[in-house]
């Protein structure tokens, strides 16, 4: 069984297990098409360049160099907590932080539980981005793309573990939903992160304007619907 499926399944079944758990993943495989997409190419071009059927000079080489440079310099951490979902009289979710998001309400329709998680690839990537921001803008762009791809890959890995764990426990996982999307304000980050003790345990902190540091960090909610 891949990743942490059985561990997560245990936590889903362990009713009301509102204890934050911390996982460390192996580096997921790099998806070059995604990396190129994040650096500004449309999907079709990105795919062609990644396949080698479009020989834009130096593009693939530079993107690969960026991926290679950060290899081994990142960590892949996830902190999560499984909570039982309650709703107020208007049907808004009662979460450990206040919000009145219609979209989240819709996204979490029929969900009795939710996985709240934060994921980060650590501050190593920010060092690379900063380094090239000052000296090589093109490389900075690829580094940025690389970080986005790595963070997304980590979220996807965790998300697929949650999906599988949910299935084993008789649940269906809804698509993940992040603070800052739609009408769920980014300001909930503060309580979201403190709920997961993400500062102390994962090194994720919040800046003045609710930006997370390290920058390649993600928080999200995954609704679990009983089947």
């Amino acid at each position: 069984m891949s990743g942490f499926v059985s561990k997560i399944a245990d936590d889903i079944e362990n009713d009301g297990a509102a204890v934050t758990q911390y996982l460390e993943y192996e580096p997921p495989e790099v998806n070059m098409t995604e990396l190129l997409r994040y650096s500004g190419f449309p999907l079709i071009r990105a795919k062609a360049i990644a396949d080698g059927t479009d020989d834009a000079p130096d593009v693939l080489e530079t993107a690969e160099k960026a991926a290679k440079l950060v290899e081994g310099k990142l960590s892949f951490k996830v902190g999560y907590k499984i909570v039982t979902v309650k709703r107020d009289e208007e049907g808004f979710l009662i979460l450990p932080f206040q919000q009145h998001s219609e979209k989240l309400k819709m996204n979490m329709k029929d969900c009795g539980k939710a996985v709240l998680f934060a994921a980060t690839i650590g501050s190593g990537i920010d060092m690379f981005i900063r380094r090239y921001e000052r000296t090589d803008t093109k490389m900075a762009l690829y580094m940025q793309a690389c970080g986005a791809e790595r963070a997304e890959a980590l979220c996807n890995k965790f998300n697929s573990d949650v999906k599988e764990a949910a299935r084993l426990s008789g649940y269906k996982a809804h698509p993940r939903y992040s603070p800052g999307f739609g009408d769920l304000p980014i300001t909930v980050q503060k309580e979201f992160l403190s709920l997961l003790d993400a500062g102390r345990r994962m090194g994720i902190t919040l800046g003045e304007s609710f930006l997370m540091a390290p920058s390649k960090s993600v928080t999200a909610i995954i609704g679990l619907e009983r089947l």
């Binding site: 190129l36 650096s39 190419f41 449309p42 000079p57 803008t137 093109k138 762009l141």
Partner: peptide, 11 residues
């Protein structure tokens, strides 16, 4: 051409 290529030229 796309952003990475624009930047390569700029570089």
């Amino acid at each position: 051409v796309y952003l990475p290529q624009l930047l390569m030229a700029a570089d």
